[in-house]
Design a protein around this nucleic acid. Structure first.
Lengths: 260, 260
DNA sequence: CGACACTTTGACTGTAGTCAATGTAAGTGG
DNA sequence: CCACTTACATTGACTACAGTCAAAGTGTCG
């Protein structure tokens, strides 16, 4: 669809030849936040030996359903969407991955979904077989990956609640809040003067719609509505200011503690 | 809601005192299908030592959100639903667990959802700290649990596609198909004469609605519609015959292979 | 039998989807 | 520099699918 550029990994050049990067990990932007954070300096040397940095333009297909994955990767920068679709083309985004998330499914089996770079993406890739050997050698690595998978499962279930039970406004508000929280995690603080948080939408309206189980038009209308209620301000198409997070939270209807 | 019986684990008696069960695992119905399948006979002896069989009536609360889980468990028999809800009471079932599924979240952290026995349930429980020690000692156990978690994540994402993008009929058809496939896995074969598969709905219409992101009425209407289209036959409220699985599959709109 | 929980059916409503037109912004080439 | 293209986004009018509210039906248990 929509004539986007298709770039497979095979066509991507390494940023630098391996031999000239004796200890790339040491200066890695996601050294401590990625799964590698579980490793000691000496263990990291092994990882460094098998890793390869690649840069993919927006729109690149990283892997697709039914494909036996041949590699694993850390997202160093950029945004990756994971999606599934029905035969008639209806699509659902089942995960939005940012740095320092991990891509790939351990222990064989196919990735039953489709992964695509939404922005330009920088990956730190590992060949499948070598990485699985590391998992075996360094139990902490496996455990870290396991914990991340548990967190992803929790997020997926939280999203099931959104998809199955939230209204359109609630969905959009939850999505904006997700981005605002992520911005907060990365050290972005509210503007000193206005107290407003500023977020940048990493994906198009079409992708937001596919993430929230809505149509483009409904997403657009709900954003307009939030704007006219002065819950948000549009700086431009992709940039939004949120003057009062709690107001947005009230609308988003966060999953409550169970009433038991 | 609906005045169901509330029974916490503390109130449940063990089926037999521990000392009189020298090797309960040897005769366990789910010995090979549960996570224990990853263990050797000698390893299993350790597991046997810390496990405890409990039986919970339908409606029992197994654990709830924000509770630090104090145990793990295999489901030996029965059906458990995992659900999340919004403050105003809207509910979404995020997982239906059957035997020999595993309950509980490794590596600490709270279970961010609510687990309830839908039918009478028989559990094989392990105290949290002792079980985590086993995970450390027997890497195969951890790996098996990891693989199961990956499968659960895949199922959750498949369900996200259903919740976000399928129509009411498609949702109901997919649910029936899920049960039919499960029945098949358990050795139930189509009726010799008619070729029909017979399934028993393990949950009420209300729970089906909460699983599919619909209302009770819509579920009921779609079942009626499938009945009048002769895709299914109602034996009684809870028992359904499916004369032709492929017809149901066509309606369910299985997630297609990606078009790439 | 009556009580209660669950299910089905009917009439009506409303939210989000569809179809179509217009608006906006960035990029291309004459 | 300005028309033109292209992709993306917004807005409007209308529709339809699923939700709501209400009543009646079914089945089970004491």
């Amino acid at each position: 669809m929509c004539g986007r550029q298709v770039v497979t990994l095979a066509t991507i050049h390494e940023i630098k030849p391996k031999s000239s990067q004796p200890n790339r990990c040491a200066t890695c932007a996601v050294r401590h936040r990625a799964v590698c954070g579980a490793l000691s300096e000496t263990e990291l040397a092994h990882v460094n030996g098998i890793s390869r940095r690649t840069r993919l333009p927006a729109g690149s297909i990283i892997f697709h359903a039914q494909e036996e994955a041949s590699f694993f990767a850390n997202i160093v920068s950029g945004v990756v969407k994971l999606s599934k679709s029905l035969v008639d083309g209806r699509q659902q985004i089942v995960g939005l991955q940012f740095s320092p998330d991990f891509l790939g499914r351990a222990y064989g089996g196919e990735n039953p979904y489709f992964a695509e770079a939404v922005t330009e993406v920088e990956l730190c890739q590992f060949p499948k077989n070598k990485f699985e050997k590391l998992l075996f050698e360094f139990p902490m690595l496996e455990q870290t990956l396991f914990e991340r998978t548990l967190n992803e499962l929790d997020s997926a279930r939280e999203w099931m609640l959104l998809l199955g039970r939230k209204t359109a406004v609630e969905k959009v508000a939850t999505f904006l809040l997700l981005l605002a929280r992520r911005a907060g995690d990365q050290g972005c603080v509210p503007d000193a003067d206005s107290g407003a948080i500023r977020i940048v939408l990493p994906i198009t309206r079409a992708d937001i719609a596919d993430y929230l189980g809505l149509t483009i038009e409904t997403v657009s209308r709900q954003i307009t509505r939030l704007k006219s209620r002065e819950i948000i301000q549009m700086i431009n198409n992709r940039t939004i200011a949120i003057p009062d997070l709690t107001a947005l939270e009230a609308i988003s209807n966060q999953s409550g503690s169970d009433t038991y």
